[in-house]
Design a protein around this nucleic acid. Structure first.
Lengths: 234, 234
DNA sequence: CCATAATTGCGATCACCGTTCGCAATTAAG
DNA sequence: CTTAATTGCGAACGGTGATCGCAATTATGG
């Protein structure tokens, strides 16, 4: 009976017919929540915090959003609006590649996004618009519908995975030579003599080229393997 | 100053020299936490819940684990122990493919694992053993150390992404014809006429073959593109 | 013009969470 | 046998998501 599905958010009108005018709005709440999440992480996005940030009482937020999950759903759909979805040029592969790069940019701007994207795909209007655009890209490709969906989903998944890996690898801003706890422990473990290959792999100094090209090659590889052509068939 | 790094767990001895014998153990706590997470989801794994499950007071758990994060780290490393890491046969690609399949199995057995794996890689002994095995697989491959690490990390990432996508797609156990909320909303949105390609893609009945083969082809594709050979060079 | 009905804002409150503190009880070492 | 460390844990603190009830506000129908 209870509305546990955050997707219910999109079935409710933002404002109903009668009653006092709301002092706030979904978009206002969304941008406030976004600012907090971008700066302090998703964990800092609590109902009370967001409410205070827009100048409302804690309980008032529930007039705009039925649950914390719905708030997150709102945030996800809002950032989905950052895609530029003009028709685009090039073959299906090139267009999907462009979408993937855009997605990577969005996930980098909003570090909390990538993990969520895999666990709970959003179904808001902006997210659906993105999906539609991605599928439009595959219009000329001869593949069953579900396969196209799968491909687009895996594209997002790979992008998310890449970005998360990118972020986990990125060394935290430690300007001083202060050894991190993690590093200290690792050093101990390696000194013990087990894990010889791990030691070797970590010892070799990091030569990792430009991550942009790396990302491009991974995605291209996947799409090619999935049967997405670079040029539309004639 | 505070030990915020969950990795600190592995630097502490399980039992110290003096004092009364502990009534519980890390592994006991881990298995209790695992049972709860597997059955009711990671959100149900609270300190109090796990403590009660092993017959201890809530505050007592902190004698074994310094924080909730460490408890999760303990859980992750424990399931990492489910890998079978015998040397294995075949070329590097085949061996990595086998590890990926094992990983998929583990993530399916423990649905809470996949999302965590990307966000917070574990560094416990079992996790390191896995990493070592994966790198041993690449012994004969001529690639710089960091590149090998990247490859192994992306392999886990892709596997996690695939499993999460798999689970999100899997229809929840709705035996009756009861339309889910999500479905209802989607139907409405599609009926509006926007999203024609999405509609088409969803209308086409799902013909998705065996997901095992799909997974194999995706991973093989990635590994091949990453320069991992099927047979060791002579 | 006014009464009605719906809706908003929100203080108070509930249950639960992670975490800390202080203390009695237990144990190994000197 | 004394000492020092360690365990188990009840109680408490601050924060969380969520609910309830009520006063204030508003568009609509009579």
């Amino acid at each position: 009976m209870p509305a546990l599905d955050p997707t219910d958010l999109w079935r409710r009108p933002e404002r109903s017919a009668v009653g006092p005018k709301p002092e706030h709005s979904r978009s206002g709440i969304a941008t406030a929540a976004l600012r907090i999440a971008d700066q302090e992480g998703l964990a800092a996005v609590s109902i009370r915090r967001v409410a205070a940030s827009v100048g409302a009482g804690a309980a008032s937020l529930y007039r705009y959003v039925k649950s914390h999950d719905e708030l997150v759903e709102l945030m996800m759909d809002t950032v989905s609006g950052e895609y530029h979805l003009e028709p685009g040029t090039g073959g299906p592969l090139e267009q999907l590649l462009d979408l993937a790069h855009q997605g990577r940019g969005i996930m980098q701007r909003h570090p909390w996004l990538a993990p969520l994207l895999l666990t709970r795909p959003s179904m808001g209007p902006n997210s659906l618009r993105y999906l539609e655009a991605a599928l439009t890209t595959l219009e000329s490709v001869d593949l069953p519908g579900p396969a196209k969906l799968q491909t687009v989903a895996m594209l997002s998944a790979i992008t998310s995975a890449f970005v998360q890996n990118e972020m986990a690898t990125a060394r935290p801003p430690g300007p001083k030579g202060a050894a991190t706890n993690r590093g200290q422990y690792l050093a101990e473990a390696l000194k013990a003599g087990d894990y010889p290959h791990l030691t070797a792999a970590l010892t070799g100094h990091s030569d990792e080229g430009h991550p942009d090209e790396h990302f491009t090659s991974i995605v291209t590889n996947y799409l090619t393997g999935a049967g997405i052509p670079s040029q539309p068939p004639d």
